[in-house]
Computed example of a mutant assay.
Amino acid sequence: MKDVAARAGVGLKTVSRVVNDEPGVTPDTERRVREAIDALGFRRNDSARVLRKGRTASIGLVLEDLADPFYGSLSRAVEEVARAHGALLINGSSAEDPERERELALALCARRVDGLIVIPAGRDHRYLEPEIRAGIATVFVDRPAGRIDADTVLSDSFGGTRAGTAHLIAHGHRRIGFIGDRPGIHTAAERLRGYRAALTDAGLPLDDARVSQGSTAPERVRSAALAMLGGPEPVTALVAGNNRVTVTAVRVLAERERPVALVGFDDLDLADLLGITVVAQDAAALGRTAAERLFRRLEGAADAPEQVTLATRLIPRGSGEIPPSP
């Protein structure tokens, strides 16, 4: 830094301000410092910065599967907020395995990230209490934390599925099936609850034969859909619990001669071209809200943990408006 200061004709403090993006430097002075930095090949020593400030300018994100478009959008939004705060994002996928989630989260803490954003796979997050007490800010997103109080950002899974099911009922459907993710997952349980609430609101019976929860693997979803579409009283409409279920449901329904209505939870690529009615949640808004909450904590906010629930949006595109077959 001394060489940079000498070449630019400024003091060490001015170089420090430019390097750390601090205010108080005129545009002309900043230009001279940056030209000196480029000419000398200066690189900031982040290790020294960590020792001085007690921060690593990095945050961790533990999600289910980065290959899933929903989590990809969420991760990108978190990264944009982190970048705006001069921080690096490090992420990893838990593959819906509670033990892997724990390992990833603690490994990130061991690498001294300043904060964590976690999409929970498990139901007990007391293992993070020592890290939180040590100053690692933590926000949970998409699902609430288990057995600890923490900031949480959710989508309205209950209200969204309730609206999607009510939409099918309004178009004349009385036999509606629901295919969702594993029942232990918070969002899956909330979406099933919304489906059942809509049926109850309309005075329709709850039939367990028209509900299937489990793996979102195509074989399992296909089997569940075919079972509901067969028999003496087949369903005339389906509610898909997430985008992976929707994709398989679309393939199954495309093979049938008689049309069956479909409402999917989560938007997906080409859904507009294929005419798929969806309950859309804003993955980017989830990630952005969680990241902004995290940096607010890092900046010293000490209010009680809160839960923020973001609204979903029903987007009619055709598949949810198909009337029941006679």
Score class of each variant (00 low, 15 high):
2 K>T: 15
3 D>L: 10
10 V>Y: 00
12 L>P: 05
16 S>P: 03
18 V>R: 00
20 N>Q: 11
21 D>Y: 13
22 E>G: 11
25 V>A: 08
26 T>V: 13
26 T>D: 14
29 T>L: 11
32 R>Q: 02
43 R>E: 12
43 R>F: 09
43 R>V: 14
44 R>N: 14
45 N>K: 01
47 S>W: 15
50 V>G: 13
51 L>A: 06
52 R>S: 08
57 A>L: 15
57 A>W: 14
61 L>S: 00
62 V>W: 00
62 V>Y: 00
66 L>S: 14
70 F>T: 08
70 F>S: 08
71 Y>H: 09
71 Y>F: 15
72 G>A: 07
74 L>P: 00
76 R>P: 11
77 A>M: 05
82 A>S: 02
83 R>C: 03
91 N>R: 15
93 S>K: 01
95 A>W: 15
100 R>P: 00
106 L>I: 10
110 A>F: 09
111 R>V: 12
111 R>T: 12
113 V>R: 02
117 I>P: 02
121 A>D: 10
121 A>P: 11
122 G>C: 00
123 R>A: 11
123 R>G: 09
126 R>T: 12
134 A>L: 06
138 T>G: 06
141 V>K: 00
148 I>T: 07
148 I>P: 02
150 A>E: 04
155 S>F: 04
156 D>C: 03
158 F>P: 02
159 G>S: 07
161 T>L: 09
161 T>S: 08
164 G>W: 04
169 I>W: 02
173 H>R: 06
174 R>P: 03
177 G>P: 04
179 I>E: 04
179 I>R: 03
180 G>F: 05
180 G>I: 04
184 G>I: 09
186 H>T: 03
197 A>Q: 10
199 L>D: 01
200 T>L: 15
200 T>A: 15
202 A>F: 09
202 A>K: 06
207 D>W: 04
208 D>H: 08
210 R>H: 13
214 G>W: 01
216 T>I: 14
217 A>K: 13
217 A>S: 14
218 P>L: 06
218 P>E: 04
219 E>F: 12
223 S>E: 15
226 L>M: 15
226 L>R: 15
229 L>I: 02
231 G>W: 10
231 G>F: 11
235 V>C: 07
241 G>R: 03
241 G>V: 05
247 V>M: 14
251 R>N: 13
256 R>N: 13
256 R>G: 12
258 R>H: 14
263 V>E: 01
268 L>S: 09
269 D>V: 11
271 A>C: 08
277 T>K: 01
279 V>T: 01
282 D>M: 10
282 D>F: 09
291 A>W: 01
293 R>E: 01
296 R>T: 14
298 L>H: 02
299 E>V: 08
299 E>R: 13
299 E>T: 13
301 A>I: 09
301 A>Q: 10
302 A>L: 08
303 D>K: 12
304 A>K: 09
322 I>L: 03
322 I>R: 01
325 S>E: 13
325 S>F: 15
